[in-house]
Amino acid sequence: MSSQFDELKRQVMESQVWQSIFRHGYEDTPRNRILMVSGNVWLHLHPSKVRKHATRLRFTWCMGGITFLMYLVTVVTGVYLMFYYRPVAEYAYADIKYLEFDMPFGMLMRNMHRWAAHGMVIAVWLHMFRVFMTGSYKPPREFNWVVGVLLLVLTLLLSFTGYLLPWDQLAIWAVSVGSNMGRATPLLGYEGPFNEVLGVNPIYDARAFLFGGGEIGAHTLLRFYILHCIFIPLVTSLFLAVHFWRIRRDGFSGPAL
């Protein structure tokens, strides 16, 4: 019986189909260990060998990885939410209720989306703190720190634009308070210093540009929806690619040998 099974296994694993998919064996050999990483489109984000300290949690806190994981969770759960949500003032709130009470796993998906978003903000701050404490921004990695600061800003913007979408009292007032700062921008804001220089007015200033109109309303909802679901995720993905690529090129930081 067991020999028949072995025979079948051998036939499957030596078949053209199997070998076209899996290019290396299971055995724990140095060659396979390297192929596991270099032959895998996701894992080859990593070099096939890393310095020992870089695998330690007490060095990295795994915070960069957790930030990225939270980003992926929000992408997956966010796509699920998009199936049921319409960014229209008349429907948005009802859609959230519908999602919470009638859709399979709707409440869970919404909870995971929101908590992962908060988690991402916390993780990205802790990641920044860790990178500072290990001095990992020092040459040659200066510019990757700058990219990281941009990603921090993008994380906050992602979370902020998403805050409006449930279209409840919490949403519009939190976003109003946050965006009122735009109205106070020097030169560009209607209530900011030197506003008369450029002739800005309540429906044509920095906040109106963000809101898509003079007051927060249906137009703002659509604008924030597109920023939240398409524009900022695209920009974030581009900067993530640069961020990861540069880590790969410069290697993990570590004490001199």
Partner: peptide, 30 residues
């Protein structure tokens, strides 16, 4: 040469980290 193989040394740490964080997030969300 204080380098070690990424698989399994780093990938295992990342996998476990992912697992714990996802369990925590799932429980929290429930």
């Amino acid at each position: 040469d204080d380098k070690v193989h990424t698989w399994p040394n780093l990938v295992r740490a990342e996998f476990l980290c992912t697992l714990f964080v996802m369990i925590f997030l799932l429980l929290w969300s429930l």
